[in-house]
Design a protein around this nucleic acid. Structure first.
Length: 512
RNA sequence: GGUCCGUUCGUCUAGGGGUUAGGACGUAUCCCUUUCACGGAUAAAACACGGGUUCGAUUCCCGUACGGACUACCA
């Protein structure tokens, strides 16, 4: 009785995968794994006019980056393929014809102009909802109103036509959504949706039912924007006689813009300065570029963790979850009902957590890679020391280098504001004698030694170390802030520190 | 307009007929400290509104308001 769980993610290749789509894919993946089932991907490319080259690869790469690649897909077909709807084109017609035979669908020959005229007429007559439905279809050109011979003649002469579903006049359509519970809609509010377009392609409504059925899909987890057409889908399962294997539906809450209201869009990301796409994307037609989370420095596991919590939670206080832990903890019951505002600050926090928990050896690679872009080589031992110095200070991997660049590159200029405030006679005195002390230093120059030497120097001058510490930092790093100075000294070595101090002494002048 | 969905701190949320309504992000303050950050501590901050039901509603029911989705030969 119980079938193997099979879920699908079914994007259309019309552009870069939106973050909401990524979350839908993630929830599908989590559900499949949790249930010991299969996660598959089907490309919904029945609208040939909206096809965008590269979009399919983008989808593939995005999911692979996150480690949630489907087990069956156009690139890794299982035995229910093909996995692109355009390649399944020939399969759909027989199902549409089957529906016509059963009296649940019909041919419609109305032109775009005639449809428009119908809508205008109805609007003028103050009909609340002008649509092609059980009432209006009696006045249109279709196989329900036209004589059988004319229908036959039109079909044979190649007249363009569509196939529409024949929505019953009075019927309550119910569906039990896994997230929302029972949803009931009266068929009179539904319209006779086109099932088969005049170009011979099915619409989403037909294709998704036929494919889900043929592919053995047990659960449809998709965005809330599909909820209004779900009753139509239920009706179609019934018309086909597939009620017994009809998948269960779960309609996910939408991802909302951080400020104000409405669905999260690329525009919001641009305005507030964050990506809404997983990867960088360049539109092949307009050349317009969109930033991606990956290129901004988000780690895949951190991004995944963040995404999972946009609308779902485990029911306890834990927040850091690996993919495996997410699978373990996931359940559809714990998905919220209301829309979720997108909060980039939380995403950054997740990234920081993941970055800090990474082994230093991995962070070292980030650091050396960044440095190499400037042709700077960091000795491995030094790189490790630098990492422990800065890892708690950054959100993104590339900041590792930005925060520590001063270690490898001696300052040539100094923060003016700090210089004005802190560069004084006392500082010059301490630094001068410290540089001399450094020259005579032999032994292991570690942080403790560096500090005690500095302390005794200051004491000898009769100056409190705290008074001149900022100036010391300025002299050696050029900046007023940064990681533990004595640790920096240890990495630099006594010779380099002395050298930098002398340069500062030569360059900076006491103002007051 | 119509249909459907939703509404707990600024944000993500836990909770559920009787709680000091809990946590996290963010914010503020304090501690640590040579700076900044990390870390630790503390604080401010929420049940949209109105009716029921009930001994008692944030929780259940109904309205209202507000928000959202959908309303194509797009998905």
């Amino acid at each position: 009785m119980s079938r193997e769980v099979r879920v699908r993610f079914a994007p259309s290749p019309t552009g870069p995968l939106h973050i909401g789509g990524v979350r839908t894919a993630l929830y599908n993946y989590l559900f499949a794994k949790k249930m010991g089932g299969k996660f598959l991907l089907r490309i919904e490319d029945t609208d040939q006019g909206r096809f965008v080259p590269g979009a399919e690869d983008y989808i593939k790469e995005s999911l692979e980056w996150l480690g949630i690649a489907p087990e069956e897909s156009p690139w890794k077909p299982g035995d229910v393929g093909p996995y692109r709807q355009s390649e399944r084109k020939e399969m759909y017609k027989q199902y549409a014809l089957d529906l016509i035979e059963k009296g649940h669908a019909y041919y419609a020959f109305d032109t775009a102009e005639e449809l428009e005229a119908m809508r205008e007429r109805l609007t003028a007559a103050r009909v609340v909802q002008p649509q092609y439905n059980g009432i209006t279809r009696t006045q249109m050109k279709n196989s329900l109103t036209l004589p059988a011979e004319e229908v036959k003649a039109r079909l044979e002469s190649g007249d363009p036509y569509v196939i529409r579903v024949k929505i019953p006049l009075k019927e309550d359509v119910r569906l039990n959504d896994m997230i929302r519970g029972w949803v009931m809609v009266h068929s009179s509010t539904l319209d006779d949706k086109v099932l088969m377009k005049s170009d011979g392609m099915p619409t989403y409504h037909l294709a998704n039912i036929v494919d889900d059925h043929l592919m053995g899909i047990t659960h449809v987890i998709r965005g809330e924007e599909w909820l209004p057409s779900a009753p139509l889908h239920v009706l179609l399962y019934k018309f086909f006689g597939w009620e017994d294997t009809m998948p269960q539906f779960a309609h996910l809450p939408l991802l909302l813009k951080p400020d104000g209201n409405g669905k999260l869009s690329k525009r919001d990301g641009d305005k507030l300065g964050f990506p809404v796409f997983p990867l960088n994307w360049t539109d092949p037609f307009s050349g317009e570029k969109s930033p991606g989370f990956r290129e901004q420095g988000y780690l895949p596991d951190a991004f995944l963790n963040f995404l999972a919590f946009l609308g779902w939670n485990p029911g306890d206080d834990r927040e850091i979850f690996s993919l495996e832990e997410l699978v373990e903890a996931f359940s559809v019951e714990r998905i919220g009902k209301s829309g979720t505002k997108f909060d980039i600050a939380k995403a950054k926090w997740f990234n920081e957590q993941y970055l800090r928990s990474k082994p230093n050896s991995e962070l070292v690679e980030f650091l050396t890679a960044s440095a190499q872009m400037e042709d700077i080589e960091i000795p491995l031992e030094k790189a490790f020391a630098i990492i422990s110095l800065v890892k708690d200070r950054v959100t993104f991997p590339d900041e590792l280098w930005k925060e520590s660049r001063f270690v490898m590159v001696a300052p040539t200029e100094f923060d003016q504001e700090v210089a004005t405030k802190k560069w004084n006679v006392d500082a010059v005195k301490v630094l001068s004698s410290y540089s001399v002390a450094l020259d005579g230093f032999t032994g292991n120059f570690d942080a403790v030694t560096a500090k005690s030497l500095l302390e005794s120097t200051a004491e000898a001058e009769g100056i409190k170390l705290g008074k001149v510490m900022q100036a010391v930092r300025l002299a050696v790093t050029g900046m007023g802030g940064g990681p533990d100075l004595m640790e920096v000294f240890a990495i630099l070595g006594s010779v380099e520190v002395a050298k930098r101090i002398r340069f500062a002494l030569d360059t900076l002048t006491v103002v007051a």
